[in-house]
Design a protein around this nucleic acid. Sequence first.
DNA 1: ACATTAATTCGATAATTCCGGAAATATCGT
DNA 2: ACGATATTTCCGGAATTATCGAATTAATGT
Lengths: 105, 105
Amino acid sequence: MDLHQAARCLEKLGSPTRLELFRLLVRAGPDGLAVGELQEHLGVPASTLSHHVAQLVNVGLVRQEREGRVLRCTPDFGLMTELVDYLTEECCRGVPAPKSARRAS
Amino acid sequence: MDLHQAARCLEKLGSPTRLELFRLLVRAGPDGLAVGELQEHLGVPASTLSHHVAQLVNVGLVRQEREGRVLRCTPDFGLMTELVDYLTEECCRGVPAPKSARRAS
DNA sequence: ACATTAATTCGATAATTCCGGAAATATCGT
DNA sequence: ACGATATTTCCGGAATTATCGAATTAATGT
């Protein structure tokens, strides 16, 4: 994860609607949620929601898989973890490396 | 840290310029950096930079303290850590708590 | 008071994002 | 083929954000 990818991910998570959307997916179990289910939870018009979902898919934080008429959305835990790791490593401690607890890749 | 505060912070970090700016402050030691020093590193016009800094100050991720003619900027490690913790807790694991409780809960 | 340096605010323009209804596409059941 | 459901794409307007030169405020030294 480099700075530009991190910024793109942060930008997309930096909207209340999209952050909540992503949080719903994370908490929704391994099957994730269909777009329609997201819509019920979030209460935004279909086209608007579609735009938000597309942006998260675009940066890779959400994956979509067709299942009949339904598009099932699942979060990419790996990418999200990379993002959090980047923030922890690059933006949370003053000194380059505190010599202890250096476990991340 | 609630969802809306997290979204506001993420939004402001979600710009390459501001993310690099914040990263510079984090890595700059306890005295942080003056706005002018940031400008040298980032190479962006003074007024543009001032807006970016102001946005980070606005959400509380950066503090400013006057020191003579110079405005010294320092990152708020506490808030940044809260943000990372929020993401870890709310957006990184599918199940509410993975049974083997980690340290803070 | 004046000049100098540091940084912000102003003002105007350009670019981007957000939103949502209407139309289009995809899939399924009959 | 037709109708129903799920979702996206298209389109345009409204709102927001980005950019940066010029003017302005703040602090210091002479």
